[in-house]
């Protein structure tokens, strides 16, 4: 029988524990509600123009600029963490970061898990098809045999699944960019996208674009689309949410919000509560 001594097992175990390489850091406000200095904010990229990366790898976009402005007001030192959409809420709960600012809609299902700030923007959704394709969204029978691309787990996904699940072939992608790419390749007949994203990636308003908007922009029902985009924090981080809310009031009042909005959009994205 071939036996190994316990000491040998211990000797093998030790470097493993040392080599695990976890970074230990104190979390200033894990439970005591004290004001924290460092706030880590998660975004899912690419989601232009809300959040995306330049070819050099730098993060930019409306959410990033607004987030930095808010952090300045609230005197936080903010760092941005890139996180896939699929794991963005579990990551928050797992304390991989302290907040999510990634065009996240306030919805009932999400509200059960996270605490939202006041909405800071409301970006409508839109149906997109290739220029010249004769598709009528209202004509349900005519949608049979067609497919639609959405980003998995978004409010768009839910809307299409609940309203059109029985007629359209729904293809769910990990990112909104993947949806746009497959519109361009011609694999998708339809896409249901966030309006700013559709403008930026498929250029639906430009006359020379291959793609066009179908029907009006969609913002209802509120049971699916919620009141607007907000920053999400862990349910017990009330102080953090309040600080963001105060900073939001400030940027609306002093015109910073409008300046940023005009940099990225030629239409109004203010939520109804701020009109």
């Amino acid at each position: 029988m071939n036996r190994l001594s316990p000491r040998l097992v211990g000797a093998l175990l030790l470097p493993m524990l040392l080599g695990a390489g976890v970074s230990v850091q104190a979390d200033e406000a894990a439970a005591d509600g004290e004001e924290r200095d460092i706030v880590r904010i998660a975004v899912d990229v690419p989601y232009p123009p809300m959040e995306y990366r330049t070819p050099e790898g730098e993060l930019t976009g409306f959410d990033i600029d607004l987030g930095n402005a808010l952090c300045e007001r609230a005197q936080f030192e903010c760092t941005w963490v890139v996180q896939n959409w699929d794991g963005i809420i579990p990551g928050l709960m797992a304390r991989k970061y302290d907040a999510i600012m990634s065009s996240m809609r306030i919805t009932e299902a999400r509200s059960r898990r996270v605490l939202f700030t006041e909405p800071y923007a409301l970006s409508p959704k839109v149906w997109v098809a290739r220029q010249g394709r004769d598709i009528d969204i209202a004509d349900r029978a005519g949608l049979k045999e067609l497919n639609v691309g959405v980003q998995r787990g978004t409010t768009q996904d839910r809307y299409v699944t609940e309203r059109y699940g029985d007629v359209l072939d729904i293809r769910r992608y990990a990112t909104a960019d993947d949806v746009a790419v497959d519109m361009q390749s011609g694999r998708l007949d339809l896409a249901f996208l966030n309006y700013p994203v559709a403008l930026d990636t498929l250029q639906i308003t430009r006359p020379e674009s291959d793609f066009t908007q179908l029907g009006p922009r969609i913002n209802s029902p509120q049971s699916i689309f919620g009141k607007g985009n907000a920053i999400a924090v862990r349910p017990y981080d009330r102080a953090l949410a309040e600080a963001f809310n105060r900073a939001l009031d400030d940027v609306y009042r002093d015109g910073t919000f409008e300046r940023l909005m005009q940099r990225y959009f030629d239409y109004d994205i203010r939520p109804p509560s701020r009109d």
Partner: peptide
């Protein structure tokens, strides 16, 4: 995802039992 949640449960226990407040952040690379 589970790894981080598991580590957090451990550190939460440390906090409740011994008042030791640490947060171990497992980054994506690790």
């Amino acid at each position: 995802y589970g790894g981080q949640i598991g580590v957090n449960m451990l550190t939460d226990q440390l906090y409740y039992a011994f008042d030791i407040d640490i947060f171990i952040n497992i980054n994506a690379f690790v």
